[in-house]
Design a protein around this nucleic acid. Structure first.
Length: 547
RNA sequence: GGCCAGUUGGUGAAGUGGCUUAACACACUGCCCUUUCACGGCAGCAUUCAUGGAUUCGAAUUCCAUACUGGUCACCA
Protein backbone atom coordinates (compact mmCIF):
# COMPACT_ATOMS: atom_id res chain seq x y z
CA UNK A 1 0.00 0.00 0.00
CA UNK A 2 1.17 3.49 -0.81
CA UNK A 3 0.65 7.07 0.19
CA UNK A 4 -1.67 7.33 -2.79
CA UNK A 5 -3.92 4.68 -1.27
CA UNK A 6 -3.99 6.61 1.97
CA UNK A 7 -4.80 9.83 0.16
CA UNK A 8 -7.64 8.20 -1.75
CA UNK A 9 -9.00 6.65 1.41
CA UNK A 10 -8.97 9.98 3.21
CA UNK A 11 -10.34 12.06 0.35
CA UNK A 12 -12.25 9.71 -1.93
CA UNK A 13 -14.39 12.40 -3.51
CA UNK A 14 -11.61 14.81 -4.27
CA UNK A 15 -10.85 14.62 -7.96
CA UNK A 16 -9.62 18.10 -8.75
CA UNK A 17 -5.91 18.69 -8.56
CA UNK A 18 -3.86 21.69 -7.66
CA UNK A 19 -3.33 22.28 -11.35
CA UNK A 20 -7.08 22.41 -11.89
CA UNK A 21 -7.38 25.12 -9.30
CA UNK A 22 -4.45 27.01 -10.71
CA UNK A 23 -6.31 27.09 -13.99
CA UNK A 24 -9.51 28.19 -12.34
CA UNK A 25 -7.75 31.02 -10.55
CA UNK A 26 -5.13 32.29 -12.99
CA UNK A 27 -2.64 35.01 -12.29
CA UNK A 28 -4.28 38.39 -11.94
CA UNK A 29 -3.72 40.90 -14.66
CA UNK A 30 -1.54 43.18 -12.66
CA UNK A 31 0.75 45.87 -13.83
CA UNK A 32 4.13 46.29 -12.25
CA UNK A 33 3.81 47.33 -8.64
CA UNK A 34 0.07 46.77 -8.29
CA UNK A 35 -0.65 45.13 -4.98
CA UNK A 36 -3.24 42.63 -3.91
CA UNK A 37 -4.18 42.82 -0.25
CA UNK A 38 -6.83 41.29 1.87
CA UNK A 39 -8.64 41.79 5.10
CA UNK A 40 -9.27 38.39 6.63
CA UNK A 41 -11.09 38.61 9.92
CA UNK A 42 -12.65 35.71 11.73
CA UNK A 43 -16.31 36.28 12.47
CA UNK A 44 -16.33 36.25 16.24
CA UNK A 45 -18.99 38.87 16.65
CA UNK A 46 -16.80 41.83 17.26
CA UNK A 47 -14.99 44.34 15.12
CA UNK A 48 -11.75 45.14 16.84
CA UNK A 49 -9.94 48.43 16.45
CA UNK A 50 -6.76 46.46 15.73
CA UNK A 51 -8.44 44.61 12.91
CA UNK A 52 -9.87 47.73 11.41
CA UNK A 53 -6.48 49.36 11.57
CA UNK A 54 -5.07 46.51 9.52
CA UNK A 55 -7.94 46.80 7.07
CA UNK A 56 -7.03 50.44 6.51
CA UNK A 57 -3.45 49.48 5.77
CA UNK A 58 -4.62 46.83 3.32
CA UNK A 59 -6.93 49.29 1.68
CA UNK A 60 -4.37 52.05 1.36
CA UNK A 61 -1.72 49.66 0.09
CA UNK A 62 -4.07 48.47 -2.63
CA UNK A 63 -5.37 51.94 -3.54
CA UNK A 64 -1.88 53.42 -3.59
CA UNK A 65 -0.88 50.97 -6.26
CA UNK A 66 -4.16 50.76 -8.15
CA UNK A 67 -4.33 47.15 -7.01
CA UNK A 68 -6.99 44.95 -5.47
CA UNK A 69 -8.32 44.79 -1.94
CA UNK A 70 -10.52 41.87 -1.02
CA UNK A 71 -12.34 40.61 2.03
CA UNK A 72 -12.08 37.01 3.11
CA UNK A 73 -14.15 35.48 5.84
CA UNK A 74 -11.99 33.20 7.97
CA UNK A 75 -14.67 31.11 9.58
CA UNK A 76 -12.76 27.90 10.20
CA UNK A 77 -13.23 28.09 13.93
CA UNK A 78 -16.81 26.93 14.11
CA UNK A 79 -16.81 27.00 17.91
CA UNK A 80 -16.18 30.71 18.14
CA UNK A 81 -18.30 31.72 15.22
CA UNK A 82 -21.09 34.24 15.72
CA UNK A 83 -23.86 34.52 13.15
CA UNK A 84 -24.19 38.29 12.93
CA UNK A 85 -20.46 38.86 12.80
CA UNK A 86 -20.10 39.01 9.04
CA UNK A 87 -22.76 41.67 8.85
CA UNK A 88 -21.03 43.66 11.54
CA UNK A 89 -17.78 43.53 9.61
CA UNK A 90 -19.44 44.59 6.37
CA UNK A 91 -21.35 47.36 8.12
CA UNK A 92 -18.21 48.72 9.69
CA UNK A 93 -16.27 48.71 6.45
CA UNK A 94 -19.20 50.31 4.67
CA UNK A 95 -19.58 52.95 7.35
CA UNK A 96 -15.99 53.99 6.83
CA UNK A 97 -16.29 53.61 3.09
CA UNK A 98 -13.57 50.98 2.96
CA UNK A 99 -15.21 48.95 0.24
CA UNK A 100 -13.51 45.74 -0.84
CA UNK A 101 -13.15 45.10 -4.55
CA UNK A 102 -13.96 41.45 -3.98
CA UNK A 103 -16.04 39.91 -1.23
CA UNK A 104 -18.86 37.57 -0.44
CA UNK A 105 -21.88 38.68 1.50
CA UNK A 106 -25.24 37.10 2.05
CA UNK A 107 -24.66 34.56 -0.68
CA UNK A 108 -23.53 37.15 -3.16
CA UNK A 109 -20.03 36.67 -4.55
CA UNK A 110 -18.27 39.66 -6.06
CA UNK A 111 -14.97 38.80 -7.73
CA UNK A 112 -13.66 35.79 -9.62
CA UNK A 113 -11.37 34.31 -6.99
CA UNK A 114 -14.06 33.14 -4.63
CA UNK A 115 -15.63 31.71 -2.68
CA UNK A 116 -14.36 34.21 -0.14
CA UNK A 117 -15.66 32.29 2.83
CA UNK A 118 -13.29 29.61 4.03
CA UNK A 119 -15.91 27.11 5.10
CA UNK A 120 -17.04 27.07 1.46
CA UNK A 121 -13.55 26.24 0.26
CA UNK A 122 -13.18 22.90 1.97
CA UNK A 123 -12.78 20.91 -1.25
CA UNK A 124 -10.01 23.18 -2.37
CA UNK A 125 -8.06 22.69 0.85
CA UNK A 126 -8.64 18.98 0.64
CA UNK A 127 -7.16 18.82 -2.84
CA UNK A 128 -4.00 20.46 -1.56
CA UNK A 129 -3.87 18.19 1.47
CA UNK A 130 -4.44 15.16 -0.68
CA UNK A 131 -1.43 16.10 -2.75
CA UNK A 132 0.66 16.50 0.35
CA UNK A 133 -0.30 13.03 1.55
CA UNK A 134 0.48 11.55 -1.83
CA UNK A 135 4.00 12.91 -1.77
CA UNK A 136 4.45 11.83 1.82
CA UNK A 137 4.49 15.29 3.34
CA UNK A 138 1.37 14.97 5.44
CA UNK A 139 -0.14 12.21 7.49
CA UNK A 140 -3.02 11.48 9.84
CA UNK A 141 -2.31 11.69 13.54
CA UNK A 142 -4.51 9.84 15.98
CA UNK A 143 -3.25 11.37 19.21
CA UNK A 144 -5.91 12.28 21.72
CA UNK A 145 -5.91 15.56 23.58
CA UNK A 146 -4.82 13.67 26.69
CA UNK A 147 -1.86 12.14 24.90
CA UNK A 148 -0.80 15.53 23.64
CA UNK A 149 -1.13 17.08 27.09
CA UNK A 150 0.93 14.31 28.59
CA UNK A 151 3.58 14.74 25.95
CA UNK A 152 3.83 18.41 26.75
CA UNK A 153 4.21 17.70 30.44
CA UNK A 154 7.01 15.25 29.76
CA UNK A 155 8.72 17.86 27.60
CA UNK A 156 8.35 20.53 30.21
CA UNK A 157 9.69 18.27 32.93
CA UNK A 158 12.74 17.33 30.91
CA UNK A 159 13.14 20.98 29.88
CA UNK A 160 13.03 20.46 26.16
CA UNK A 161 11.03 22.49 23.66
CA UNK A 162 7.36 21.64 23.71
CA UNK A 163 5.65 20.57 20.52
CA UNK A 164 4.97 17.77 18.09
CA UNK A 165 8.29 17.37 16.32
CA UNK A 166 11.11 14.90 15.69
CA UNK A 167 10.90 11.88 17.93
CA UNK A 168 7.86 13.32 19.70
CA UNK A 169 5.90 13.12 16.46
CA UNK A 170 4.26 9.81 17.24
CA UNK A 171 2.64 9.06 13.88
CA UNK A 172 5.27 10.63 11.69
CA UNK A 173 7.00 7.40 10.79
CA UNK A 174 4.20 4.93 11.17
CA UNK A 175 3.85 2.74 8.05
CA UNK A 176 1.00 3.61 5.68
CA UNK A 177 -0.61 0.20 6.21
CA UNK A 178 -1.08 0.94 9.86
CA UNK A 179 -2.38 4.45 9.21
CA UNK A 180 -4.85 3.07 6.70
CA UNK A 181 -6.16 0.45 9.04
CA UNK A 182 -6.56 2.98 11.84
CA UNK A 183 -8.52 5.24 9.53
CA UNK A 184 -10.68 2.29 8.51
CA UNK A 185 -11.32 1.53 12.16
CA UNK A 186 -12.84 4.97 12.43
CA UNK A 187 -10.43 6.42 14.93
CA UNK A 188 -10.62 10.24 14.86
CA UNK A 189 -7.60 11.94 13.39
CA UNK A 190 -6.14 15.26 12.35
CA UNK A 191 -3.84 15.75 9.39
CA UNK A 192 -0.37 16.96 10.21
CA UNK A 193 2.23 18.44 7.95
CA UNK A 194 5.49 16.47 7.83
CA UNK A 195 8.16 19.04 8.41
CA UNK A 196 11.65 18.68 6.99
CA UNK A 197 13.01 21.69 8.78
CA UNK A 198 15.79 21.86 11.34
CA UNK A 199 15.20 24.04 14.37
CA UNK A 200 18.93 24.61 14.74
CA UNK A 201 19.18 26.11 11.30
CA UNK A 202 18.24 29.71 10.77
CA UNK A 203 16.95 31.52 7.77
CA UNK A 204 16.59 35.18 7.06
CA UNK A 205 13.14 36.50 6.55
CA UNK A 206 12.33 39.99 5.43
CA UNK A 207 9.34 41.66 6.98
CA UNK A 208 8.35 44.97 5.45
CA UNK A 209 7.94 46.62 8.84
CA UNK A 210 10.66 45.03 10.92
CA UNK A 211 13.23 44.45 8.22
CA UNK A 212 15.45 41.39 8.16
CA UNK A 213 14.79 38.93 10.94
CA UNK A 214 16.66 35.73 11.61
CA UNK A 215 14.30 32.90 12.47
CA UNK A 216 14.81 29.21 13.20
CA UNK A 217 13.39 26.79 10.66
CA UNK A 218 10.15 25.12 11.54
CA UNK A 219 10.41 21.49 12.57
CA UNK A 220 6.96 20.98 14.02
CA UNK A 221 4.52 18.63 12.42
CA UNK A 222 1.71 21.08 12.99
CA UNK A 223 -1.93 20.38 12.33
CA UNK A 224 -3.18 21.45 8.92
CA UNK A 225 -6.63 19.89 9.04
CA UNK A 226 -8.81 19.53 12.08
CA UNK A 227 -10.74 16.45 13.04
CA UNK A 228 -14.49 16.50 12.95
CA UNK A 229 -15.39 19.16 10.42
CA UNK A 230 -12.26 18.62 8.35
CA UNK A 231 -11.61 22.35 8.06
CA UNK A 232 -8.04 23.58 7.71
CA UNK A 233 -6.14 25.46 10.37
CA UNK A 234 -5.16 29.08 9.79
CA UNK A 235 -1.68 28.13 8.62
CA UNK A 236 -2.92 25.93 5.85
CA UNK A 237 -5.80 28.13 4.76
CA UNK A 238 -3.36 31.03 4.55
CA UNK A 239 -1.17 29.05 2.16
CA UNK A 240 -3.97 27.90 -0.11
CA UNK A 241 -6.06 31.06 -0.14
CA UNK A 242 -3.34 33.60 -0.49
CA UNK A 243 -1.75 31.48 -3.18
CA UNK A 244 -4.91 31.01 -5.24
CA UNK A 245 -6.20 34.53 -4.65
CA UNK A 246 -2.78 35.86 -5.58
CA UNK A 247 -2.31 38.04 -2.55
CA UNK A 248 0.89 40.00 -2.90
CA UNK A 249 0.98 41.59 0.57
CA UNK A 250 -0.21 40.01 3.79
CA UNK A 251 -0.92 42.56 6.49
CA UNK A 252 -1.42 41.02 9.92
CA UNK A 253 -0.61 41.64 13.57
CA UNK A 254 2.87 40.94 14.85
CA UNK A 255 1.54 38.07 16.93
CA UNK A 256 1.91 36.11 13.68
CA UNK A 257 5.62 36.71 13.39
CA UNK A 258 6.46 33.56 15.30
CA UNK A 259 4.51 31.36 12.91
CA UNK A 260 6.29 32.70 9.86
CA UNK A 261 8.63 29.65 9.77
CA UNK A 262 5.61 27.37 9.41
CA UNK A 263 4.21 29.43 6.59
CA UNK A 264 7.49 29.70 4.77
CA UNK A 265 8.04 25.96 4.92
CA UNK A 266 4.55 25.37 3.61
CA UNK A 267 5.07 27.69 0.67
CA UNK A 268 8.45 26.15 -0.11
CA UNK A 269 7.07 22.63 0.00
CA UNK A 270 4.57 23.49 -2.69
CA UNK A 271 7.11 25.52 -4.61
CA UNK A 272 4.94 28.64 -4.29
CA UNK A 273 6.36 32.09 -3.89
CA UNK A 274 5.35 33.43 -0.49
CA UNK A 275 3.67 36.84 -0.32
CA UNK A 276 5.35 39.83 1.22
CA UNK A 277 4.53 40.22 4.88
CA UNK A 278 3.64 43.37 6.79
CA UNK A 279 3.56 42.53 10.48
CA UNK A 280 1.99 45.50 12.18
CA UNK A 281 2.63 46.53 15.75
CA UNK A 282 -0.19 45.88 18.14
CA UNK A 283 -2.44 48.61 19.44
CA UNK A 284 -1.72 48.79 23.11
CA UNK A 285 -3.15 50.32 26.20
CA UNK A 286 -1.47 51.65 29.29
CA UNK A 287 -2.61 50.22 32.55
CA UNK A 288 -0.71 51.57 35.51
CA UNK A 289 2.91 50.96 34.76
CA UNK A 290 2.43 48.06 32.41
CA UNK A 291 1.31 47.93 28.84
CA UNK A 292 -1.05 45.46 27.30
CA UNK A 293 -2.88 44.71 24.13
CA UNK A 294 -6.08 46.68 23.85
CA UNK A 295 -8.78 44.28 24.94
CA UNK A 296 -12.41 43.96 24.12
CA UNK A 297 -13.40 43.10 27.66
CA UNK A 298 -11.73 45.97 29.43
CA UNK A 299 -11.67 48.73 26.83
CA UNK A 300 -14.87 49.91 25.19
CA UNK A 301 -12.78 51.85 22.68
CA UNK A 302 -11.37 48.55 21.39
CA UNK A 303 -14.61 47.97 19.54
CA UNK A 304 -15.38 49.84 16.37
CA UNK A 305 -18.98 50.20 17.51
CA UNK A 306 -17.76 52.61 20.20
CA UNK A 307 -16.86 55.25 17.62
CA UNK A 308 -20.10 54.84 15.76
CA UNK A 309 -22.19 55.07 18.89
CA UNK A 310 -20.40 58.20 20.02
CA UNK A 311 -20.78 59.64 16.57
CA UNK A 312 -17.21 60.38 15.67
CA UNK A 313 -16.87 61.55 12.09
CA UNK A 314 -15.69 58.83 9.76
CA UNK A 315 -12.83 60.97 8.55
CA UNK A 316 -11.61 61.63 12.07
CA UNK A 317 -11.36 57.98 13.03
CA UNK A 318 -9.48 57.23 9.86
CA UNK A 319 -7.19 60.18 10.33
CA UNK A 320 -6.40 59.17 13.90
CA UNK A 321 -5.58 55.67 12.75
CA UNK A 322 -3.54 56.90 9.80
CA UNK A 323 -1.50 58.98 12.21
CA UNK A 324 -0.63 55.85 14.13
CA UNK A 325 0.06 53.93 10.96
CA UNK A 326 2.53 56.49 9.59
CA UNK A 327 3.23 59.44 11.83
CA UNK A 328 4.12 61.64 8.90
CA UNK A 329 0.49 61.37 7.77
CA UNK A 330 -0.55 64.36 9.85
CA UNK A 331 1.93 66.66 8.25
CA UNK A 332 1.05 65.37 4.81
CA UNK A 333 -2.62 65.82 5.50
CA UNK A 334 -2.32 69.45 6.57
CA UNK A 335 -0.37 70.16 3.41
CA UNK A 336 -2.83 68.22 1.24
CA UNK A 337 -6.16 68.81 2.92
CA UNK A 338 -8.08 68.43 -0.33
CA UNK A 339 -6.79 64.91 -0.94
CA UNK A 340 -8.16 61.58 0.18
CA UNK A 341 -6.29 59.47 2.69
CA UNK A 342 -5.80 56.89 -0.03
CA UNK A 343 -3.61 59.40 -1.85
CA UNK A 344 -1.15 59.28 1.00
CA UNK A 345 1.67 56.89 0.19
CA UNK A 346 1.87 54.43 3.03
CA UNK A 347 5.28 53.09 3.89
CA UNK A 348 5.58 49.96 6.03
CA UNK A 349 9.16 50.89 6.82
CA UNK A 350 8.02 54.09 8.45
CA UNK A 351 5.76 52.22 10.82
CA UNK A 352 6.80 52.21 14.38
CA UNK A 353 8.01 48.76 15.28
CA UNK A 354 6.80 48.94 18.84
CA UNK A 355 3.24 48.94 20.09
CA UNK A 356 1.08 51.89 19.18
CA UNK A 357 -1.03 53.79 21.66
CA UNK A 358 -4.40 54.86 20.34
CA UNK A 359 -4.97 58.20 22.02
CA UNK A 360 -8.60 59.18 22.51
CA UNK A 361 -7.64 62.76 23.34
CA UNK A 362 -5.89 63.02 20.04
CA UNK A 363 -8.95 61.61 18.32
CA UNK A 364 -11.09 64.30 19.97
CA UNK A 365 -8.80 66.98 18.71
CA UNK A 366 -8.77 65.61 15.18
CA UNK A 367 -12.54 65.19 15.25
CA UNK A 368 -13.09 68.79 16.36
CA UNK A 369 -11.05 70.03 13.48
CA UNK A 370 -12.82 67.74 11.04
CA UNK A 371 -16.27 68.90 12.14
CA UNK A 372 -15.22 72.53 12.20
CA UNK A 373 -14.30 72.29 8.54
CA UNK A 374 -17.68 70.91 7.46
CA UNK A 375 -20.41 73.08 6.03
CA UNK A 376 -23.58 73.51 8.06
CA UNK A 377 -25.36 71.12 5.70
CA UNK A 378 -22.74 68.45 6.18
CA UNK A 379 -22.90 68.72 9.93
CA UNK A 380 -26.66 68.65 9.78
CA UNK A 381 -26.74 65.55 7.59
CA UNK A 382 -24.28 63.72 9.80
CA UNK A 383 -26.14 64.76 12.91
CA UNK A 384 -29.38 63.68 11.29
CA UNK A 385 -28.00 60.24 10.45
CA UNK A 386 -26.51 59.76 13.87
CA UNK A 387 -29.61 60.83 15.79
CA UNK A 388 -31.75 58.63 13.56
CA UNK A 389 -30.00 55.64 15.13
CA UNK A 390 -29.18 56.88 18.59
CA UNK A 391 -31.46 59.76 19.61
CA UNK A 392 -34.91 59.61 18.12
CA UNK A 393 -36.26 62.54 20.12
CA UNK A 394 -33.55 64.90 18.99
CA UNK A 395 -33.85 63.56 15.48
CA UNK A 396 -37.49 64.59 15.34
CA UNK A 397 -36.65 68.00 16.70
CA UNK A 398 -33.96 68.79 14.17
CA UNK A 399 -36.18 67.46 11.41
CA UNK A 400 -39.00 69.73 12.50
CA UNK A 401 -36.67 72.72 12.66
CA UNK A 402 -34.30 71.81 9.85
CA UNK A 403 -33.39 75.28 8.61
CA UNK A 404 -33.26 76.67 12.11
CA UNK A 405 -30.95 73.84 13.22
CA UNK A 406 -28.68 74.47 10.28
CA UNK A 407 -28.47 78.10 11.30
CA UNK A 408 -27.65 77.10 14.85
CA UNK A 409 -24.93 74.78 13.61
CA UNK A 410 -23.65 77.58 11.44
CA UNK A 411 -22.84 79.96 14.28
CA UNK A 412 -19.20 80.98 13.95
CA UNK A 413 -18.70 78.37 11.25
CA UNK A 414 -18.30 80.36 8.05
CA UNK A 415 -15.12 82.15 9.01
CA UNK A 416 -11.43 81.55 8.48
CA UNK A 417 -11.01 79.90 11.84
CA UNK A 418 -14.29 78.20 12.65
CA UNK A 419 -15.14 77.18 16.17
CA UNK A 420 -14.13 73.73 17.33
CA UNK A 421 -17.02 72.86 19.56
CA UNK A 422 -17.91 69.29 18.79
CA UNK A 423 -15.76 66.21 18.63
CA UNK A 424 -18.65 63.87 17.98
CA UNK A 425 -22.32 64.04 17.09
CA UNK A 426 -23.45 62.75 20.47
CA UNK A 427 -22.03 65.92 22.02
CA UNK A 428 -23.97 68.38 19.93
CA UNK A 429 -27.27 68.15 21.75
CA UNK A 430 -25.68 69.02 25.07
CA UNK A 431 -24.11 72.06 23.54
CA UNK A 432 -27.07 73.52 21.74
CA UNK A 433 -30.05 72.31 23.75
CA UNK A 434 -30.87 75.85 24.83
CA UNK A 435 -31.70 76.73 21.27
CA UNK A 436 -34.80 74.55 21.50
CA UNK A 437 -37.69 75.39 23.82
CA UNK A 438 -38.56 71.70 23.86
CA UNK A 439 -35.23 70.97 25.51
CA UNK A 440 -34.77 74.16 27.47
CA UNK A 441 -35.69 73.57 31.06
CA UNK A 442 -32.75 74.70 33.17
CA UNK A 443 -32.53 73.48 36.71
CA UNK A 444 -29.58 75.74 37.41
CA UNK A 445 -27.83 78.75 35.95
CA UNK A 446 -24.07 79.22 35.60
CA UNK A 447 -23.99 82.74 37.00
CA UNK A 448 -20.57 84.31 36.82
CA UNK A 449 -19.27 87.08 39.05
CA UNK A 450 -22.65 88.76 39.42
CA UNK A 451 -24.91 86.53 41.47
CA UNK A 452 -27.10 89.03 43.30
CA UNK A 453 -30.65 88.49 42.17
CA UNK A 454 -31.65 92.16 42.38
CA UNK A 455 -28.64 93.25 40.42
CA UNK A 456 -29.32 90.65 37.78
CA UNK A 457 -32.92 91.79 37.44
CA UNK A 458 -31.85 95.39 37.28
CA UNK A 459 -29.50 94.64 34.40
CA UNK A 460 -32.03 92.54 32.54
CA UNK A 461 -34.94 94.91 32.98
CA UNK A 462 -33.00 97.93 31.89
CA UNK A 463 -31.60 96.05 28.96
CA UNK A 464 -34.97 94.89 27.71
CA UNK A 465 -36.59 98.27 28.30
CA UNK A 466 -34.03 100.59 26.80
CA UNK A 467 -31.20 98.77 25.07
CA UNK A 468 -32.57 95.71 23.31
CA UNK A 469 -31.68 95.95 19.63
CA UNK A 470 -30.46 93.07 17.50
CA UNK A 471 -30.74 94.70 14.12
CA UNK A 472 -26.99 94.73 13.73
CA UNK A 473 -24.12 93.32 15.70
CA UNK A 474 -22.36 96.62 16.21
CA UNK A 475 -25.54 98.31 17.31
CA UNK A 476 -26.26 95.39 19.62
CA UNK A 477 -22.90 95.60 21.31
CA UNK A 478 -22.85 99.39 21.53
CA UNK A 479 -26.15 99.16 23.36
CA UNK A 480 -24.69 96.75 25.86
CA UNK A 481 -21.84 99.16 26.39
CA UNK A 482 -24.23 102.00 27.02
CA UNK A 483 -26.06 99.81 29.48
CA UNK A 484 -22.77 99.30 31.26
CA UNK A 485 -22.04 103.00 31.45
CA UNK A 486 -25.52 103.62 32.73
CA UNK A 487 -25.16 101.10 35.57
CA UNK A 488 -21.59 101.79 36.58
CA UNK A 489 -19.88 98.94 34.75
CA UNK A 490 -16.85 99.52 32.57
CA UNK A 491 -17.78 99.41 28.91
CA UNK A 492 -14.16 99.24 27.90
CA UNK A 493 -12.08 96.32 29.08
CA UNK A 494 -8.81 98.26 29.01
CA UNK A 495 -10.19 100.93 31.28
CA UNK A 496 -11.49 98.28 33.58
CA UNK A 497 -8.17 96.48 33.80
CA UNK A 498 -6.35 99.69 34.53
CA UNK A 499 -8.72 100.83 37.24
CA UNK A 500 -10.92 97.96 38.38
CA UNK A 501 -11.86 99.81 41.56
CA UNK A 502 -13.61 102.56 39.65
CA UNK A 503 -16.30 100.16 38.46
CA UNK A 504 -18.83 97.64 39.75
CA UNK A 505 -17.57 95.31 37.11
CA UNK A 506 -17.06 95.20 33.39
CA UNK A 507 -18.87 94.63 30.16
CA UNK A 508 -17.73 91.03 30.46
CA UNK A 509 -19.75 90.60 33.64
CA UNK A 510 -22.81 92.24 32.16
CA UNK A 511 -22.58 90.16 29.02
CA UNK A 512 -22.35 87.04 31.12
CA UNK A 513 -25.56 87.97 32.90
CA UNK A 514 -27.32 88.30 29.56
CA UNK A 515 -25.80 85.11 28.27
CA UNK A 516 -26.76 83.06 31.28
CA UNK A 517 -30.23 84.54 31.51
CA UNK A 518 -30.89 83.53 27.92
CA UNK A 519 -29.11 80.18 27.71
CA UNK A 520 -28.45 79.18 31.33
CA UNK A 521 -24.84 78.53 30.28
CA UNK A 522 -21.85 80.79 30.78
CA UNK A 523 -20.02 79.27 27.87
CA UNK A 524 -21.69 79.55 24.50
CA UNK A 525 -20.78 80.67 21.02
CA UNK A 526 -21.42 84.23 19.93
CA UNK A 527 -24.32 85.63 21.97
CA UNK A 528 -25.46 88.00 19.26
CA UNK A 529 -26.02 85.12 16.84
CA UNK A 530 -27.85 83.17 19.49
CA UNK A 531 -30.16 86.07 20.29
CA UNK A 532 -30.87 86.66 16.66
CA UNK A 533 -31.87 83.06 16.13
CA UNK A 534 -33.91 82.88 19.32
CA UNK A 535 -35.86 86.08 18.62
CA UNK A 536 -37.32 88.62 20.98
CA UNK A 537 -40.34 86.64 22.16
CA UNK A 538 -38.35 83.70 23.40
CA UNK A 539 -35.75 85.95 24.97
CA UNK A 540 -38.46 87.79 26.87
CA UNK A 541 -40.12 84.63 28.04
CA UNK A 542 -36.81 83.21 29.25
CA UNK A 543 -36.05 86.37 31.17
CA UNK A 544 -39.55 86.41 32.62
CA UNK A 545 -39.05 82.84 33.76
CA UNK A 546 -36.15 84.00 35.90
CA UNK A 547 -38.17 86.39 37.95
C1' G B 1 11.91 28.21 30.01
C1' G B 2 12.91 28.24 24.27
C1' C B 3 12.42 31.44 20.06
C1' C B 4 11.44 36.49 18.24
C1' A B 5 10.85 41.62 18.65
C1' G B 6 10.87 46.36 21.10
C1' U B 7 12.88 50.37 24.56
C1' U B 8 13.61 58.73 22.24
C1' G B 9 9.26 64.05 27.18
C1' G B 10 2.61 62.95 29.93
C1' U B 11 1.15 60.88 24.49
C1' G B 12 1.95 59.74 18.99
C1' A B 13 6.67 60.29 17.22
C1' A B 14 10.94 62.64 13.61
C1' G B 15 15.69 61.04 13.49
C1' U B 16 19.92 55.72 9.65
C1' G B 17 27.58 58.96 12.27
C1' G B 18 28.63 65.73 12.44
C1' C B 19 23.18 70.50 9.79
C1' U B 20 20.11 68.06 16.85
C1' U B 21 21.40 73.49 22.03
C1' A B 22 16.41 66.10 19.60
C1' A B 23 11.50 68.26 14.35
C1' C B 24 6.25 68.22 14.24
C1' A B 25 1.51 67.24 16.49
C1' C B 26 -1.70 66.20 20.90
C1' A B 27 -1.93 67.23 26.12
C1' C B 28 -0.35 70.61 29.87
C1' U B 29 1.32 75.72 31.83
C1' G B 30 1.78 81.07 31.28
C1' C B 31 0.91 85.57 28.56
C1' C B 32 -1.69 88.22 24.61
C1' C B 33 -6.30 88.91 21.82
C1' U B 34 -11.28 88.97 23.69
C1' U B 35 -18.57 90.29 25.93
C1' U B 36 -17.94 84.14 28.09
C1' C B 37 -16.01 79.76 26.18
C1' A B 38 -13.61 78.25 22.13
C1' C B 39 -10.51 79.81 18.06
C1' G B 40 -6.02 82.27 17.04
C1' G B 41 -1.02 84.38 18.31
C1' C B 42 3.42 84.13 21.40
C1' A B 43 6.27 81.62 24.98
C1' G B 44 7.44 77.40 28.23
C1' C B 45 7.55 72.04 28.55
C1' A B 46 13.54 65.57 27.14
C1' U B 47 21.00 69.20 28.76
C1' U B 48 18.93 63.98 26.66
C1' C B 49 17.43 59.19 23.51
C1' A B 50 16.44 51.95 29.10
C1' U B 51 21.51 50.87 31.60
C1' G B 52 26.71 49.68 31.24
C1' G B 53 30.76 49.10 28.06
C1' A B 54 33.21 49.26 23.10
C1' U B 55 34.31 51.53 18.08
C1' U B 56 35.08 56.76 16.49
C1' C B 57 37.98 63.20 16.26
C1' G B 58 32.52 62.84 16.88
C1' A B 59 26.89 58.10 18.52
C1' A B 60 19.88 58.71 19.83
C1' U B 61 22.10 56.78 15.32
C1' U B 62 27.34 51.11 14.73
C1' C B 63 28.80 46.75 17.96
C1' C B 64 28.55 43.79 22.63
C1' A B 65 26.39 42.79 27.34
C1' U B 66 22.54 43.63 31.02
C1' A B 67 17.68 45.15 32.46
C1' C B 68 12.80 45.77 31.47
C1' U B 69 8.42 45.36 28.23
C1' G B 70 5.70 42.75 24.60
C1' G B 71 4.61 38.55 21.21
C1' U B 72 4.58 33.29 20.60
C1' C B 73 5.12 28.14 21.97
C1' A B 74 -3.48 24.96 20.50
C1' C B 75 -7.41 20.44 16.39
C1' C B 76 -7.85 29.95 17.95
C1' A B 77 -7.30 33.00 14.44
Amino acid sequence: MTNKDLADLLFPSITKTIKDYEEMYPERNLKEGEKVTRFAPSPTGYMHLGGFYQAIIDYVLAKNSNGVFFLRNEDTDTKREVKEATKLIMDTLTHYNIIPDEYEFEGNIVGSYGPYVQSERKEIYHAFIKYLIEIGRAYPCFCTKEELDEMREVQERSKVRTGYYGSYAKYRNVPVEELISKVKEGIPYVIRFKSMGDFNKKFVFEDLVKGKIELPENDEDFVIMKSGDGLPTYHFAHLVDDYLMHTTHVVRGEEWLSSVPKHIELFRTFGFKPPKYVHTPLIIKKEGTSVRKISKRKDPEASMTYYKEKGYPVKAVIEALMTIINSNYEEWHTANSDKEFTDFVYSPKKMSSSGAFFDLEKLDNIAKTVISKMTKDEVYDNLYNWTKDYDKEFNELITKYEDYTKNVLNIEREQKKPRKDYSCYSEIKNQIFYMYDELYNPSSYDWGSITDKDEINKILNLYMDKYYDISDKEVWFNNIKELCDNLGYASNMKDYKENPDNYKGSVADVSTVLRVAITSKSMTPDLYEIMKLLGKDRIISRIEKLK
